[in-house]
Structures are given as C-alpha cells and as structure tokens.
Nucleic acid binder design. Structure first.
Lengths: 215, 215, 215, 215
DNA sequence: CATGAATGAGTATTCATTCAT
DNA sequence: GATGAATGAATACTCATTCAT
C-alpha cells in the first residue's frame, strides 16, 4: 500500500495506458488491465480519471501538443538556410511520426471515424506546413526548384515515412544506408535540389552509420 | 423462409460482415449485428463459421487473393511498354489500396500484431514488385533513369497514396487536377522520366477531368 | 436448461421483478437478484428487456392499466343505486390500493421525484372521480348530503386506506370488525348518509366476518 | 482549515446528510456527497460515524424525538378545552407530518422493512394518542359525540394529511380555502361536533387566508 | 438449415470503507 | 482532527458461443 502522490500516480496511469493502448488498442485494453499493470485496484483508476474515454482524450491532447511543440521547437531558430532548417525538422520527425502513428491505432469505432480523420489531417497539418515553409525558402534561395511547394512537402514526407515499411524484418546496416540514400535521392528529385545537397538526411540514420556508403 | 443453399448463405454472411467491419470495425461489430443485417437468427452464424475470429481470417485471405489477382491481371498482358504497363497498374490500384487500408483497420489485438505487420508488408509485397518490374523495364527502355528501382517503386506508391490525404474535405475539380499533376510530376522526377511522359497518371482522375488543366 | 417460450419467460421475469421491487425496492434489487430468483443466467434478462429501467416503466404501465380497468369494470354496470355502486367500487378497491401503494415504494431517485408525484396523483385521479360520481349520484338520490362531493370522495378514501394502519400487528376478528364499523360510520358521516346505510362496507371484511358484531 | 470542535462537526454532518437524504434519498446519497457538501474529505466521515447506516439510525432517532417533543410540548398546557387543545396540536402537526413523511422516504431495503413498518406505526402512535385524548376530552365536554375515539382520531388525521394530495399543482387561494373548509367540515362530522365549531382548522392555512371565505 | 432461448465470462463504473500520514 | 490515496465488492450491461428443438 505505498500511497503515492497524486500527480505521480496519475502519470503512472497515463504511461501504463499509453503502453497498453499501443500494444492492444484502446478497445482491447480494459481498465482492469491498466490497474493490474500498475499493481493497484481498479477502483483507483476512477479516483484519477472520470472515464476510460476521458483518459483517451487526455492522451490524445497530450500527444498532439507533444507533436506541436516538437515541431515548433525545431522551427524557431533564426538565420538558418533552408537545408539547415530541414536538418532540424528531420531531427524531430522520428518522434512526430511515431506519435501520430500511435494515435491512429487507437481509433476503431464508427463514432470515432471522423475524429480519426481529423487527427490524421491534424498531424499532417502540423508537419506539412513546416516543411512547406522550408521548401519555399529553398526556392527563394535557389537551391530548390519545384512548382508545387505544398505537394512537394507532402511527397517528401510520405516517401520518408513510407520507406520505413520497405525495411526487412531485421535490416542490416547496409539495408538502412541504402534506404536512406534512396530517401535522400528522391527527396532531392522531388524538390529539385542538386544531387547530394540534402546530406542532412543522414540525420535519420543512427549516428554510427552516418558516414557510411552502401554497396 | 426459403432455405438458401449453403454456399450462398455463407457468401451473404461474408458480405454482410465485410460491410459491417468496415463501418464499425471488427471489435464493434457483434455477431448479432451480422445476423440481423441478413435478417436471420444469430445461431445460424455458427452453422457456417466456427467463430467470429475465423470469419475474420477468412475475409483476410479473401481480400489478399483479390488484391493478388487484380495485380496479376494487370500484369499479364504481353507486349506493353513500361508506361503502358504503368497505366494498367494504376487502373487497379485504387481498388488495391482500398482493400489493404480496410484490412489494416481490422487489427488491434496484441495477438494480431505480428499478423498485422505481416499483412501490411504483404500488401506492399504484392504491389511493389509489380511496380518495380515496370520501373526496371522503363530503365531498359531508356525512358526511366534511377539507381534504386525497388525504392523508386515504393516512393511512387507512397506519394500516390499519401497525396490523397492532402485533399481538402470537399475538393474542387481544380484541387483534384492540381494534386494529380503534382503526383505525376513527382513520379516522373522519382523515376527520372521526361516531364509529361507519365500522362497515364491521368487515369487516376475521374473521366470528366482527365483532359483538364489547373490554374 | 428448460428453454421456455418467450412470452412465458417474460411474464416470469416481470412477476419476479414485481415481487422483488416490492420486497426490497427498485434500487436495491439487482438484475442478478431477479435472474437468480428465476434460476436463470443474468444475461437472459437482457434478452427480454432493454434495461432495468425499461422493465420498471413496463411494470408501472401495467399496474396503471390494471388499476384503470379494475375501476372501469366496477363502474360500467347500469341501473345501480349510488350505494350499490359504492359496493362495486369497494370490491375492487383493495386491489387498487395495494397496487398504487406498491408503485410508490419504487421511487426514490431525485430524478423520479416528479414522476412519483405524478403517479400518486394519477392513482388518486382514477379512484377519486369514480367515487365522486357515486357521491353526486347519492346526493341526487337524496341518500347523501354533503357540499363538497370531490373532497368527500377523497376523505372517504383516505379514511379507508388509513384505517388499515391502525390495525395491530396481529389483529383479532374483533379488531377487524371494529375498524370496519368505524370506517363505515365515518364514511356515512362524511357523505351525510343515514347511520347504517353504508352496510356495503361489510364487503371489505373477509367473508366469514361479514355479519359479525364487535364488542 | 480551522479544525472545528467535534460536536459541531458531527452536527454539520448530520445536517448535511438530512438535506441530501431528503433531496436524493438515502441510497442515492454517497458519503462523498455528504463530505463534499461540507467541504471536507470523505475520510473524515468515518471519524465521526461508524457507517452510513449508523448515521441513518441516528437521524431517525433524532427525528423521532423531535416529533415526540413537538407533540408533548403541545399537550402539556393545562386548563385548555378540547377544541383549544386541538388548535395546539394542529399548530405543530405540519412539522410532524413533514418529518414522518421524510423518514418514510428513506426506507427501501428488505432488512429495513420491519423497521419502516415500525416507524410508520410509531409516528402514528405518537400523533394518534394525543388526538385521541383530545377527542375523549371533547366527548366529556359534550362538544364531540362519537363511539370510536381512537378511530375518529385516526380518521381526522388521515383526512387532514390526505386532503393535501387533492391540491392542484398550483393551487389558488380559493382552492386552499375550499380544501380547508372541507377538512374542517368532515372533521366535525367525524367527531360529531357542531358545524363550524372546529374553526381552529383555520390555523392550517397561511395567516393571510385565515379569515377568507371561498366561492 | 434455421431458430432463438440460454449461458457465463467480461467491461466500465460506483461507492462504502480503511488507513498511513 | 483531517486528509486523500487505496481497496474491493457490487452493479448494469454486452456479447461470443452453445444447443435443444
């Protein structure tokens, strides 16, 4: 019976719920599952949250604002070139992608359909405009050349996130490097940048692979 | 109460279930919902299927093979150029995309996690190799130029499917045309095709818009 | 596992519920209690009723219409004198009183307050007008004499029902006869009838006591 | 958080509980509701009371003795006529009726059934003997004439309390006066008093209506 | 083939009660 | 005295599954 402080317990609940929702989906996680994982009684859940649904809302908002502030943080530095700025955005994108994917997994109910749709768009609506601004800046700086900046931003994003699905189950270092190079090449082609100029894509690789060549 | 023939009833069940799973998700569709939609008693379900879970498996397999044969059909024509072949594939892609997206929506259970992953890959594994073959053929035909055919195929696919998410809630004709042009342009850049050469992307548009220009 | 016919089971449920609601009140009767009393699984309840609340509504309506038709039946005979008519009403009143008292016991929720009030009134609104008509007829027939027929009807009713509460825990025959005589006397006084003229009050007694005198 | 003195806090709890039990019923009032209304923590309740049930018992007893002393107070004056004494009893009866009605509302549990019954009787057992003594005194004084003093007392009481239920939802002054006159008339007839002699019934009316006539 | 009554384990939620601080 | 975190049993309701007919 270690009576924890309220905020701490609340945090524990949220963390356990996030884990479980991700593992099994929202519908398939029972309040009891959550309590059990924490080793407390089910009733305690309702001491901290009004309902399972409310907790979901809370987690959603939390993720949203995590995404939002990650992006905002990466965009606020002054005096960077378009390509440097892209580097900054890339650094936070893994995180963003992960979170938004996670959220999507939560929704299955008919009544959530529209909400789900909204959320998908919203995650994009946060990432894409940031990337679009970078593309436009690049065009002004004459390092990019493309007639549809918004669509180019989208395309870069979809290629980056999609490429991950081409990864084999247990990718070798070479697989990773190769995919990364492809990602970079096609990003360059999409925005009309000089071959090799988007070396900042390197940042998507784990540090030890950043200089590597592939076969 | 004209006692239908067994195979027919089975088919009806599957159809009703597919509709409902799509509308409300697998978890939120009860066996009773399915029976009610068919206007039969819940008990009958278990005459035709071992369990709700089994029915899901069956529907999965069914969708898989639908995808498979749609792709196969589009690839079997002989004597086409790479670009013509791409046109064929595009014609069936809407269908394929729809089906694979649908399937993904069904999975949320922990025990289905690996299956889900497998499925995602599998859908790609069917579509991508087809597209990859086309890219390789295009390279041989000197109309494409790209060093990573498989990744290029993936990129084209991700751009195509992703672009749909950039559509506004109620897209104007112009929105659709613009997105389609962007898709085409970036596909061309990715595979290294001459600008305008992939006019077959037109086939993704509703017929009445196919010749259109956008502002 | 004796699979009863639906209407029969439904009836069983209603009967068991009425018993239990009366014994323990609506709030304190669980759906499980009801099922257990019938020796069936809890789930079966929901095969027959949408919710516990719905069942309550149903029972209420049922009681209401039982009351209504009991009263209507007693009033429809033609060509009776006021006093004969009173006899008819008395015959059904025990039943009516019982039922309306029962209903009152069901309501405890704040949100039911107004409903409860409505019901109380409604039960009275069915019984009193009937009795009032009899009083008016009696006045016309010159056997009654009272200036407030409606209030007189109410007073007769309240005296009759109230008197029951004066009964000792285990009343002797003499107690019963004495209470009945008092009831009759005060009814006569209220409506201004000749002493002894409302011998029909006898009908409230169990048959074996009807001729009796008390000490 | 000025730590109140024990007896004061206890009183506050009782008061809050009485309010809430009346508003929402015993079952529908949670210990938390009570604590919240007082602005203290739920746990404190159990410092002052063994259980919610115990608190109920306590409130019951309290109400009982309130009723008892109200009646006793009205009966202890010396040298009054029967009719004057009736006036005194009427003055405190509103209060008594209210309290006993309230108590009845609390009971719904099977295990409380007998208690409830007992209480109903008890409230009557306090009110009726008082009234009965008045009736007997009236008979001695030759202003009343009735063979069943106890039953007459009961009848008067039931008529008085019952008449309230004949009130329309929003009674006019005239409605009130008319009901009051009827009550008086039928009380007079029940105890065999001269018409108009029980003018003390006037005291049941709000002061401003006491002299009024009705149409 | 088809029905629909019956089951029972599972789910979210409530609440009286306890107790370490 | 007072707090509030923690418990656990109870409750209404759902649903996949079974089975006698």
């Amino acid at each position: 019976m270690p009576s924890k402080s309220a905020p701490e317990r609340r945090t524990d609940f949220v963390a356990a719920a996030r884990e479980l929702f991700e593992e099994k989906g929202f519908e398939n996680t029972s309040v009891d599952d959550i309590a059990t994982r924490l080793g407390v009684a089910k009733g305690l859940f309702y001491y901290y949250f009004e309902s399972k649904e409310m907790l979901l809302d809370l987690i959603m908002e939390q993720m949203m604002s995590e995404i939002e502030s990650a992006i905002a943080a990466s965009m606020e530095k002054k005096g960077l070139t378009a390509i440097e700025r892209l580097g900054e955005l890339i650094k936070c994108s893994a995180d963003v992608t992960f979170r938004s994917r996670t959220m999507l997994g939560y929704f299955h109910k008919e009544r959530n359909r529209s909400l789900r749709f909204t959320m998908e768009k919203k995650a994009l609506e946060m990432m894409i405009p940031a990337l679009e601004r970078i593309v436009r800046q690049g065009i002004e700086e004459k390092v990019f050349d493309t007639p549809y900046p918004r669509e180019a931003a989208g395309a870069m994003l979809f290629v980056s996130t999609g490429m991950k699905e081409l990864k084999p189950a247990e990718p070798s270092a070479d697989d990773l490097v190769r995919l990364n190079r492809a990602m970079q090449l096609y990003a360059e082609r999409i925005v009309g940048a000089a071959p090799g100029s988007l070396h900042v894509y390197n940042l998507m690789l784990p540090p030890e692979l950043r200089g590597a060549k592939h076969d």
